[in-house]
Write a protein that binds this DNA or RNA. Structure first.
Lengths: 201, 201
DNA sequence: CCTTAAACGTTGATTAACGTACATCCGAAT
DNA sequence: ATTCGGATGTACGTTAATCAACGTTTAAGG
């Protein structure tokens, strides 16, 4: 049985309205009346799906995180043969994701709402890095959990700077920058190559 | 009693879908299945409001013409005393209208569909010019009907060139161009000067 | 020719969204 | 302290849109 597309449309409209309103004013001051007016929906429609503004916001955040995870995993699911440089393909999907939700990320970065969101998204990034980028020959001197956290927050820092700078680069350029940073900072060039190749299955 | 906004939304989605499809292929080859898929609507919704693709297209054309008329009249409705100098304010609204429906006009211009539409829109323009721009002192040597037709098609030519050139100018620039053309082509410079000054007051 | 897939047009049952109304609640201005 | 306008939460009956399914028509290919 398929899902009723009316529900998706209404929810989308409500989230889009919330984003638009958050670009202009504090979340706390946004009323449900404003949201349904901006979404061009009846007030009862809001209460059919949510109780409060916060609930709507939470689902929006969930959407972002789910899309982030899907974006990260997308390159891995259909890769058959190995190609060097597929790390680029993987990371560019992340930046594509940020671009897709650019308005949301801009709100996050340029305001102090959602202080917990940054940690939350980094936690997701960390888990992704941990699961998908398991090193075949782990360095015995490095704790894997520390390493993935290190990489996750580093990537997040890249994103923050990109958003703050009002998306002056394309997502492809951002991916290239990431590759360059990784190459430059790692002393053993051949280790990088192995690292890249192993990522691809 | 207010109108049901679901109807408007569905019709809007269908028209938007039709425009998108007409940007890519011939109108004749567009199926209802494609339309409802692009509009993300159930196929029964289409048949609730229309019988054929042509009927949908006709209503879209009506929308454009109605918006054109409204755009043209908007500056006049709130003007109490009649001022000839409001031509600038009036004409910029026309170009705003074209910009609002830029995708539609681009389709019209860049394809051979709707050969009758150009005459139809010029007819509307002519009537508007005739009704709203009645000269206080008509030139006895000029037929009013001929004059309004002349002006209507001239304005349309301006629009065609604007659209063909991929909207290289702003609507305000287009309005200014129109004023300049009128000024240059009219022998009585002092009348024009008065004309212009009235616009700026 | 025949087959097959896609588009067509319609139907019936279900439900999400609608307009409207009402009784609160609350903050701000009087 | 009181008024008052806006927001809230809820409820009702109506209806547009939904999904699923159906038989038919059309057109392209074997």
């Amino acid at each position: 049985m398929k899902k009723d597309r009316r529900i998706d449309k209404s929810k989308m409209a409500l989230k889009e309205a919330l984003i638009s309103l958050m670009e202009e004013k504090e979340f706390k001051s946004i009323t449900i009346t404003e949201i349904v007016h901006s979404a061009n929906l009846n007030r009862g429609t809001f209460y059919k799906h949510y109780q409060t503004q916060g609930e709507l916001l939470n689902e929006l955040i969930d959407d972002v995180l789910i899309d982030l995870i899907h974006s990260y995993r997308e390159p891995y699911v259909k890769i058959k043969n190995f190609e060097v440089g597929k790390l680029s393909a993987a990371s560019v999907k992340i930046f594509d994701h940020v671009e897709r939700y650019s308005r949301f990320y801009t709100i996050i970065v340029n305001s102090n709402v959602l202080p917990g969101f940054q940690n939350r998204i980094c936690q997701v990034l960390k888990e992704l890095v941990q699961k998908e980028l398991i090193s075949p020959m782990p360095n015995p001197g490095i704790d894997p959990s520390l390493l993935s956290s290190y990489n996750a927050y580093a990537l997040f820092g890249l994103i923050i700077e990109w958003v703050s700078g009002d998306f002056k680069f394309t997502s492809q350029q951002m991916a290239d920058q990431l590759i360059n940073i990784l190459s430059y900072q790692t002393p053993k060039a051949e280790a990088i190559t192995v690292f890249k190749e192993k990522n691809l299955h």
